[in-house]
Design a protein around this nucleic acid. Structure first.
Lengths: 202, 202
DNA sequence: GCTGTTATGGTTCGATCGAACCATAACAGG
DNA sequence: CCTGTTATGGTTCGATCGAACCATAACAGC
């Protein structure tokens, strides 16, 4: 049945198999044969759609990354018309937590790739910018919060933003490792946000 | 030259080779042959000292873990006779940051094992308790700080301790990924500690 | 000074890996 | 309807993997 193949769909189907295997046992388990079996296609198709194994690893990560951005925007849009800084910051930080199966898988896949990011420039290029961008975004929102009196002037917006993001990432690890539930992590984020977003007198 | 072999030394020599390879390319690179070459011993010796590859991975992690605890205690002892809560908490949190080559390697090795912790009970057993123990330790120190007037009564010791640990772990990731320097991360920890450890009036 | 255990090197085997190669049905465009 | 590209399955090859096996020097204890 050629010529009517949906390339994007096929690539996604294969990429998802890569994710599942990576989550289950690290990149070591992501072998061409295993991916083929998991995606229920022939090994030949992996070569056709992605090329070499290195390309497959890179391609599957790219799709994961594009997904992350796309879904995050969707969810943030769901916050309503004029969400308020507090709610937006909360939404951004929740993207970093494994609060549902989608985000759990995503962060676990990133974890499986982690050490590779340090040595493989191609992989690093895909996932490099996100964390810094998040910090800047949060910092901007906190600054806006200061201008509208929701955040005290005395807080250092950049420092607080960076530590909130770092805290969310640390909580992510602890949830993935089963040391606390996602709900507990969310509650801890809210606790910190309540500290930062304090209606200031004057 | 038998009978005068120092088993602990040999095992450490091999474990360090495992760490280097894991840091360089993940557990995928930790093959018996590569470890043998890196440690400059024959593959046969790996079997002799560790057994199967699974055992090797587990054994190398155990040694890493024991090292972590031992070295942390050493460094905390170096703080002096009566360090004060603030200094101890700072020391504990700095153990989580890649501030030197030793700790950088350690945390990268943990990162390489990460996804395995979720599915392999043996591996999980080795590294499971540490984070919770750290949180409790920090929480206790903050509570003591409250009793001695170094920390305001209004802070939630447990919540703040957990978030400090989470923040340190998030900063760890960002330093490993080269998004900021270890010094910057330390400065951010100090910024947060200054907020918590505020001499309280009355 | 034998003897048995300890520490080590080397080799081999079946399995699996990534990648290249071979084949061919199904459709598109002329 | 014919033809060439597209999408796919299957097979094969050399390399490498983990693990078992074979060998043996060096020392310890008697």
């Amino acid at each position: 049945m050629p010529r009517q193949a949906d390339h994007d769909r096929r690539r996604r189907q294969i990429a998802e198999a890569v994710w599942r295997l990576a989550v289950g046992g690290g990149l070591e388990e992501v072998t061409l044969r295993q991916v083929a079996a998991e995606a229920q296609v022939s090994a030949r198709l992996l070569q056709y759609y992605f090329g070499t194994r290195t390309d497959l690893l890179l391609g599957a990560l790219k799709i994961l990354n594009d997904d992350a951005e796309h879904r995050a925007r969707e969810r943030l849009a769901l916050l309503g018309e004029t969400p308020g800084m507090h709610a937006i910051v909360r939404g951004v930080l929740l993207e970093l937590l494994p609060v549902d199966e989608e985000r759990r898988t995503r962060h676990l896949v990133y974890a499986a790739y982690f050490v590779r990011f340090l040595t493989d420039p191609d992989l690093a290029g895909v996932a490099r910018d996100a964390p810094r961008a998040l910090e800047d975004l949060v910092a901007g929102l906190i600054t806006q919060g200061q201008d509208t009196g929701q955040v005290p002037r005395r807080v250092d917006a950049a420092a607080e933003a960076a530590f909130l993001v770092a805290g969310a990432e640390g909580l992510q690890s602890s949830v993935l490792l089963g040391q606390r539930t996602a709900d507990e992590a969310v509650a801890m984020i809210d606790h910190q946000l309540a500290r930062v977003f304090t209606p200031t007198p004057a």
